[in-house]
């Protein structure tokens, strides 16, 4: 499978994402933000960082870059897009995902390991995560507090669009386990069509035991499985 990892000025998790995909046995390459085409791509990763210095609002400027027009088209055609951290912020600013990410409730930048509960296996980003498995992955953000108005939040729930929630080590969705004040402990969501997802935690930084956890690989394994099914379906 071919992964396109976007690279904006001040992206800083782009190489980590490329490394994780290659480590797990697939090919990945960087696509510069000024490129208007994604080339031969099965999945797009919008990586973490501080694109365009986070000027104005996180992700606000990046959404207007030429490559994001290509990503929009790719997503409209059903292509898989995963936004990680700043990439999640970019996707909400671009209107590809509902809601917004605002300043952490304690105004602090949080760089730590957290626990994630997978709310549904019914998505290309979560299908392979073992039932009941609590993922231990790092976060590193100052503006990761998920916000959406009541109407949007109700829609997310009805459509099963909440993919991951912050929890404690045993899987309880408690307030102390919520690092940033996100509504409903939301760490990641997908769109209505379920082909675009975003999350604040960094699965790409937790794909090998050397880094303290390889729980993040389950999210990538889910994407690989979804792409494989798609290829099989296309060939049939």
């Amino acid at each position: 499978m071919n992964f396109a990892v976007l690279q904006f000025p001040a992206s800083n998790c782009d190489q980590d994402a490329v490394h994780a995909v290659r480590l797990l046995g697939h090919s990945a390459r960087l696509v510069w933000h000024k490129d208007a085409s994604l080339g031969d791509t099965d999945c797009v990763i919008v990586p973490g960082g501080f694109s365009y210095g986070d000027y104005l609002r996180c992700g606000a400027i990046a959404r207007f870059s030429p490559v994001m027009q290509a990503v929009k088209q790719f997503a409209d055609n059903g292509g898989l897009v995963l936004g990680i951290c700043n990439g999640f912020q970019v996707l909400t600013e671009a209107g590809l995902l509902p809601g917004a990410l605002i300043r952490n409730r304690d105004l602090q930048f949080h760089c730590e390991n957290i626990f994630l509960k997978t709310a549904t296996n019914d998505s290309p980003f979560t299908s392979q995560i073992p039932a009941g498995k609590i993922l231990r992955v790092p976060i590193a953000h100052g503006e990761g507090c998920y916000f959406a108005d009541e109407e949007t939040l109700a829609k997310l729930k009805t459509n099963n669009q909440i993919l991951w929630q912050y929890c404690d080590a045993t899987g309880n969705l408690t307030d102390p386990a919520n690092p940033n004040g996100a509504l409903q402990n939301i760490a990641g969501i997908c769109n209505e069509k379920r082909n675009v997802a975003g999350l604040m935690p960094h699965p790409e930084r937790a794909c090998e035991p050397l880094l303290g956890s390889d729980d993040g690989k389950w999210i990538f394994e889910s994407i690989f499985a979804a792409l494989k099914n798609k290829t099989v379906a296309a060939a049939a």
Binding site: I102, R103, N104, L107, F147
Partner: peptide, 13 residues
């Protein structure tokens, strides 16, 4: 300005 329904931790502080 932040919408009234949005948490404004800077304002509160």
């Amino acid at each position: 300005t932040p919408k009234k329904a949005v948490l404004d931790p800077q304002g509160i502080t």
